[in-house]
Simulated scan of single mutants.
Amino acid sequence: MVKPLLDLKTLQQENIAVLFGGDSAEREISLKSGAAITEGLINSGFQVTAIDTQGFDLANLQTQKIDRVFIALHGRGGEDGCIQGALEYLNIPYTGSGVLGSALSMDKVRSKQIFKATGLPTADFAVVNQADYESDTAEGVLAQLGSKVMVKPAKEGSSIGMAIASSIDELNAALQHAFKYDQQILVEAWLSGAEFTVSVLGNEALPAISMVTPNEFYDYQAKYQSNCTQYHCPCGLDKAREEELQTIALKAFNATGAQGWGRVDLMQDSNGKFQLLEVNTVPGMTVTSLVPKAAKAAGIGFEQLVTRVLQLSGADKF
């Protein structure tokens, strides 16, 4: 159950800080999100202070008399519960998910375990820990999951550190690369179908988007650098199938304890069945990002979107 939206006129009297940038591997995307959100909020009549958190002392939020925070930090430190816990300690309300929902959603391994435990569809997977990794680990993983797999650092976003492997040598190389980003790696059975994303705003699933890329998978280059990636909204599914997709996404969002707003990524397997990939609690928010695209399809402009996200924030998480 989602609480009522906060009063707009009251919020416009508050001092709002947009936190962005930071030190994660997703810093460059966060800088763009923060700039777009700041502009959108200012255009909507809010009093906004834009803060790059790289080298910033969070205690200064109290000195600056900040009443509320819009979190635009992607990846570690901003999407994993750390900044959320710090803001709760400072007793400053913030947008999006709380500490637990952020931490669980950021952790691909724990998310997959939750999906499995709650009966939600997700591809088979194995977990490889750097501490007990051995040269024959790859052979056992491929025997379990099939001849082609996707390798993902457990706690990175934007496809950073991800790779495809279809042989023992390729998997060992992919694992060694992924260990540069995380000590725990998720290895997922290969999914060959279409990829979709469903944005969540409050308790509503927005229109789904399908992503089509000439790359072998929807990687960092396809997301942020390619001019060839295509985004389709409407997503090409019939009404019943899109509603099924949205229902699964909402269940996944709730299962990890996510709140307020976010995005759920899914793919189809070779039989056309939807399989959950992950929940994103602070997805990209430039004017061309996926959440704003879905919101636009639902008749919600960018300024209205960032206002709604702010209205969904509160102190009820702590």
Rank of each mutant, 00 (worst) to 15 (best):
F217A: 11
G284P: 07
A205K: 02
E244C: 12
S147M: 05
G262C: 08
G85C: 11
V264D: 10
P93L: 01
V264C: 10
W261H: 14
K148G: 02
G314N: 12
L310G: 12
D265F: 00
G260C: 09
L73D: 00
E195G: 11
E79A: 05
S135H: 13
L90D: 10
Y89R: 14
G193E: 06
D316W: 12
A297W: 05
L142P: 10
D132S: 15
I66L: 09
K3P: 10
G193H: 03
V279C: 06
D316N: 12
P153N: 04
L305I: 06
I71D: 04
I37S: 07
I42H: 05
I248T: 09
Q176K: 15
P234I: 13
D169I: 13
E204S: 14
Q259L: 11
I92Q: 05
P121E: 04
K293P: 07
A315F: 08
A255K: 05
A165H: 02
N43C: 12
Q12K: 15
V187T: 09
H74Y: 02
V287S: 15
L310R: 13
A194Q: 15
I92R: 09
K296N: 11
E303Q: 15
I51W: 01
R76N: 09
G260H: 03
L5T: 04
Q230M: 11
F179K: 13
S30T: 00
A205Y: 00
T53A: 03
A138V: 13
L201R: 07
Q259T: 11
E303H: 11
K296M: 05
M285A: 06
L90W: 04
Q47N: 15
F20I: 02
T63C: 07
T286H: 05
P153A: 06
L276Q: 15
V306Y: 01
K112A: 11
Q84T: 12
Q64T: 04
A298E: 07
A17M: 02
G40F: 02
I248R: 13
V309R: 03
A174Y: 02
E303L: 01
L31G: 07
E242T: 14
V279P: 02
Y218G: 13
I185T: 14
Y218T: 09
K180L: 14
V18E: 00
S33H: 03
T53G: 05
V282D: 01
A138Q: 10
C82G: 03
